[in-house]
Design a protein around this nucleic acid. Structure first.
Length: 506
RNA sequence: GGCUCGGUAGCUCAGCGGUAGAGCAGGAGAAUCAUAAUCUCUUGGUCGGGGGUUCAAAUCCCUCCCGAGCCA
């Protein structure tokens, strides 16, 4: 039976250049996508840009370009980021594309046909910057709680009968609590729904940059309804019979930042229920990064540029750090010293040096290893831990526990380093060459397994490692993390350090 | 103001009813294959305060203090 997996990042709003938060979300999805592909799944990995809304319209006007020109320029930034991060997305959607306009309007039609949309009027304090309405009582000194300016807006508006989904959502989540993670977000969403759901204004007439409401072009679709629909667009909606749609909508995972949980865990599922579609399998909300202990903000000027990070530390290290340092779902702090510690301790000392000490000995003493006849209990113990990695690591990745997955892999790397010391192959060289070969074989085999398992996290570095070991490209998925696929007898080249230590410039 | 989640070694955190744990940092030693990397041992905590339940509590209950988030 075919196994399918659909993974999405949020679509990024084109009013800003990419920062570490965008990189983080996309990276997490990339690891999941690569992991699933390595375990036999057919994967659809989607990312993209959200290009409509009053904010874009106004920014474009200020810049003296059309909204589409403006959006195209910023969308390119995000496309470039994906390339720079070596992201394996299968599609990049822009909400200004025709396919999306058609899908979003079709979704609107469906909601309307099913009786969940009605025309009313809306009045309230609106913040363009926040894309949100506020009650009089919510205003602080005449401004939004966020500090954004607000304006009084009174206009006819279509409404979505969100109130009708209060009980259905509560029932659904009671039955499928694993849908929203981590647990703290699940609690938040439930308490929000229990607090009562009011019908949602889903159209605007005060600006033009958006998808027109079908049959009433004076109205523009609410940006969130427009944006969320992208997840359907990319798999062929409204053609619910298309292969992509049938395969992928049954198993979708949305990774989002914690600020947009409500849209994904309340509004979006309600839209889907109203459209007669099944709900996402998993909505994971991750946390925010701080910079050297300080909250990141544009006004403070401490925004972290992902390109600068990669320039300084290298892509492999950045990918590793972001997913290892902090439990996914919690806030984390980015600091130079923490980054250096991870590079030098985990990557250079533990893994890099393990490879170097093992490969050097193979290269000098017994290049072209073959599988030994007999293994001792110590050899078997190490190999069994290596062969258990797909299951152990997979279990953590299934629940998006990246840091634990990496911890498990480093447990085996630690065992391997201890094994080298205990077996002392450099001593065996003088006393028992056959035994030395067995020990080195066991180590190279362990490294091969770790390399295969680490591919989703550091695809570049692991490709280099596996190439070095002459592992054929068709023997790199996780089904090969078993005995019998170990070594090519092809001799190794002279080894070079895989992860050089990070040395501070004086 | 209501709800939720946290407060455990210098730092980040795990443990969630049965004699306090990991990683990193600090200290001592071993080894010398290796990116001065590795390995072993080790210093270090009245588990936020107080009260209660229990033969037994970081672990359950109450209360207070502190922090974070969501909602009003």
């Amino acid at each position: 039976m075919q196994k399918n997996y659909y993974i999405t990042t949020p679509i990024y709003y084109v009013n800003d250049v990419p920062h570490i938060g965008h990189a983080y979300t996309t990276l997490a999805c990339d690891v999941l996508a690569r992991y699933k592909r390595l375990t036999g799944y057919t994967v659809k990995f989607l990312t993209g840009t959200d290009e409509h809304g009053q904010k874009v319209e106004q920014s474009a006007q200020k810049a003296g370009v059309t909204p589409l020109e403006y959006a195209t320029k910023y969308s390119a930034h995000f496309q470039r980021l994906a390339k720079t991060l070596n992201i394996s997305n299968d599609d990049f959607i822009r909400t200004t594309e025709t396919r999306h306009k058609q899908a979003a309007q079709a979704l609107w039609h469906k909601l309307e046909a099913n009786g969940f949309i009605y025309l009313g009027s809306y009045a309230g304090w609106y913040s363009v910057r926040d894309e949100a309405f506020y009650q009089e009582s919510e205003l602080v000194n005449g401004k939004a709680p966020s500090g954004a300016p607000v304006e009084w807006v009174e206009e006819p508006s279509y409404f979505f009968k969100l109130s009708a989904f209060e009980q259905p959502l509560l029932d659904y989540y009671a039955e499928h609590p694993e849908t929203i993670a981590p647990k703290s977000r699940y609690n938040e969403v439930l308490s929000f729904i229990k607090g009562g759901l009011k019908d949602l204004s889903i159209s605007r007439t005060s600006f033009a940059w958006g998808i027109p409401v079908p049959n009433n072009e004076k109205h523009i679709m609410y940006v969130w309804l427009d944006a969320l629909a992208n997840y359907l667009t990319a798999i062929g909606y409204p053609d619910e019979q298309s292969p992509d749609f049938k395969n992928f909508w049954e198993n979708v995972t949305h990774v989002v930042g914690k600020d947009i949980v409500r849209f994904h865990a309340v509004y979006w599922p309600a839209f889907l229920m109203a459209a007669g579609l099944n709900l996402p399998k998993r909505i994971y909300a991750h946390g925010w990064w701080t910079n050297e202990g300080q909250k990141i903000s544009k006004s403070v000027g401490n925004v972290i540029d992902p390109y600068a990070l990669i320039d300084t530390y290298g892509l492999n290290a950045v990918r590793y750090f972001l997913l290892r340092e902090v439990p996914f779902g919690q806030d984390g702090d980015f600091s130079h010293t923490a980054m250096i510690r991870r590079i030098n301790t985990d990557l250079s000392n533990d893994l890099g040096n393990l490879c170097q000490r093992v490969f050097s000995q193979v290269f000098k003493n017994c290049n072209g290893l073959t599988r030994p006849e007999t293994l001792t209990a110590e050899d078997t113990a190490l190999l069994e831990k290596a062969y258990a990695l797909p299951e152990v690591v997979g279990k953590e990745l299934e629940v998006q526990a990246f840091h634990k997955a990496l911890e498990e892999i480093w447990n085996v790397i630690g065992d391997a380093n201890r094994y080298v010391d205990a077996q002392a192959p450099w001593a065996l060289k003088k006393t028992d060459v056959e035994r030395m070969k067995t020990v080195l074989y066991t180590l190279v085999e362990t490294i091969r397994c770790a390399g295969l398992i680490l591919q989703p996290f550091m695809p570049d570095a692991m490709a280099e490692l596996l190439d070095f070991l002459h592992i054929p490209h068709d023997q790199r998925d996780w089904t090969f993390v078993v005995a019998g696929h170990a070594l090519q007898t092809v001799p190794l080249d002279e080894p070079k350090p895989l992860f050089p230590r990070f040395v501070e410039e004086a």
